[in-house]
Simulated assay, not measured.
Amino acid sequence: MKLLKATYLFVLAVVLVSCGTSRRINGDGTIDERLTAKQLIKESARQEAKFKTLQAKVKIDITQDGKEQGYSVTLRMERNKTIWISATLGLARAMITPDRVQFYDKINNQYFDGDYSLLSDLLGIELNFKQVQSLLIGEPLFNLKDAEYTISNNETSYILTPKTEDPLLELFLLFNPSHFKMDSQQLAQPLKKRFLEMDYTNYQAIENEVLPQTLKIIAVEENEELNIALEYKSLSINEDLRFPFNIPSGFEEITLDDAK
């Protein structure tokens, strides 16, 4: 799938990023040269999110072909159950659950109601709810206990790479030494000329939780590049939230073939 034709679906499906007082974290921890890969994986698991619900206002800037567009959306999340997003005035709305992906667009009178095939086809990797949630809250996209990793570091981050190289998928995971959340996740598919990078440039502390404050996504396919910058304008957790979602009647259904 060409990125140019998939931008609309990419934005709705991937930028579902997630008032309360927050404290910015600069990520100025010190690298421990003695840390092993197993210890890093253990520390990362200890820092997994424990919130019940999350709500945020998110500013989104999308750049492609030299053109930039800005949006503001509301995100609500019930951890491990629901990811919900609503654009201004409810003109577009999406809801993701562990077994279903849904969204509708009132501007074009279209909707999608299906499984994760659309997201998986778009990004070129098999996706599930847990992976989408992890991407949004700064946690590893993959279960690190499923493979063995080699640890290294640069001046600011620990780096994990799989011990066994996969010619179809290259993976680089960069961890912040201050709180062991992600600094960057980078996936490359050389044969398909695809590259996906997610950079978590700032974090914030909310009630003992460490959550992203800014996130940049770079998606490249052949000669096409899509850049998405996300800023969490406000963030609160563990409040009672509603997730209203109802596809309007008369809308045209979007299929996988339509998105290609």
Score class of each variant (00 low, 15 high):
residue 119 L to N: 08
residue 73 V to S: 06
residue 30 T to R: 12
residue 88 T to D: 08
residue 26 N to K: 14
residue 113 D to F: 01
residue 91 L to T: 11
residue 60 I to F: 07
residue 28 D to R: 13
residue 124 G to T: 11
residue 113 D to E: 04
residue 85 I to Q: 11
residue 95 M to P: 14
residue 42 K to T: 11
residue 106 K to V: 04
residue 33 E to C: 00
residue 27 G to T: 08
residue 32 D to E: 14
residue 54 L to C: 03
residue 80 N to G: 02
residue 42 K to Y: 10
residue 86 S to Q: 13
residue 104 Y to D: 04
residue 52 K to R: 09
residue 25 I to A: 00
residue 88 T to S: 06
residue 102 Q to V: 02
residue 110 Q to A: 04
residue 82 T to H: 04
residue 108 N to F: 12
residue 91 L to W: 11
residue 119 L to Q: 09
residue 62 I to T: 04
residue 83 I to Y: 06
residue 111 Y to V: 03
residue 88 T to Y: 05
residue 102 Q to E: 13
residue 68 E to K: 15
residue 73 V to H: 01
residue 87 A to V: 05
residue 59 K to T: 04
residue 52 K to T: 14
residue 118 L to N: 02
residue 44 S to C: 03
residue 51 F to Y: 04
residue 117 S to V: 01
residue 55 Q to Y: 15
residue 116 Y to N: 02
residue 71 Y to L: 05
residue 55 Q to M: 08
residue 23 R to Q: 14
residue 41 I to M: 02
residue 101 V to A: 00
residue 47 Q to F: 03
residue 106 K to L: 07
residue 74 T to I: 10
residue 87 A to R: 09
residue 21 T to I: 06
residue 27 G to I: 00
residue 92 A to P: 07
residue 30 T to S: 13
residue 26 N to Y: 15
residue 106 K to S: 07
residue 48 E to T: 10
residue 101 V to L: 06
residue 103 F to N: 00
residue 92 A to E: 14
residue 71 Y to S: 09
residue 111 Y to F: 13
residue 46 R to W: 06
residue 113 D to L: 01
residue 24 R to N: 07
residue 43 E to K: 14
residue 71 Y to I: 02
residue 36 T to Q: 07
residue 65 D to V: 04
residue 50 K to T: 14
residue 68 E to P: 10
residue 69 Q to R: 15
residue 52 K to V: 09
residue 27 G to S: 03
residue 33 E to R: 10
residue 103 F to Y: 14
residue 63 T to V: 07
residue 38 K to V: 01
residue 117 S to F: 00
residue 64 Q to F: 13
residue 71 Y to M: 10
residue 45 A to L: 07
residue 41 I to D: 08
residue 110 Q to G: 07
residue 57 K to T: 10
residue 104 Y to S: 08
residue 47 Q to S: 12
residue 54 L to W: 03
residue 97 T to A: 01
residue 107 I to W: 03
residue 72 S to G: 06
residue 45 A to Y: 15
residue 112 F to T: 04
residue 110 Q to Y: 09
residue 46 R to E: 09
residue 96 I to E: 01
residue 72 S to F: 00
residue 82 T to F: 06
residue 68 E to Q: 15
residue 75 L to G: 13
residue 78 E to C: 07
residue 31 I to D: 00
residue 96 I to L: 03
residue 47 Q to L: 02
residue 86 S to A: 08
residue 91 L to R: 15
residue 46 R to V: 04
residue 104 Y to F: 09
residue 85 I to A: 11
residue 25 I to L: 13
residue 87 A to P: 05
residue 71 Y to D: 10
residue 28 D to G: 05
residue 118 L to V: 04
residue 81 K to R: 15
residue 100 R to F: 00
residue 97 T to W: 03
residue 45 A to V: 12
residue 48 E to V: 02
residue 59 K to W: 12
residue 49 A to R: 08
residue 47 Q to I: 00
residue 106 K to Q: 11
residue 23 R to S: 11
residue 113 D to K: 03
residue 32 D to I: 03
residue 38 K to A: 07
residue 83 I to R: 08
residue 66 G to A: 02
residue 95 M to A: 02
residue 28 D to T: 12
residue 120 S to I: 03
residue 45 A to N: 15
residue 61 D to W: 11
residue 35 L to Y: 13
residue 34 R to F: 07
residue 61 D to R: 12
residue 79 R to K: 15
residue 55 Q to T: 12
residue 28 D to K: 14
residue 102 Q to W: 10
residue 90 G to W: 00
residue 44 S to R: 07
residue 105 D to N: 12
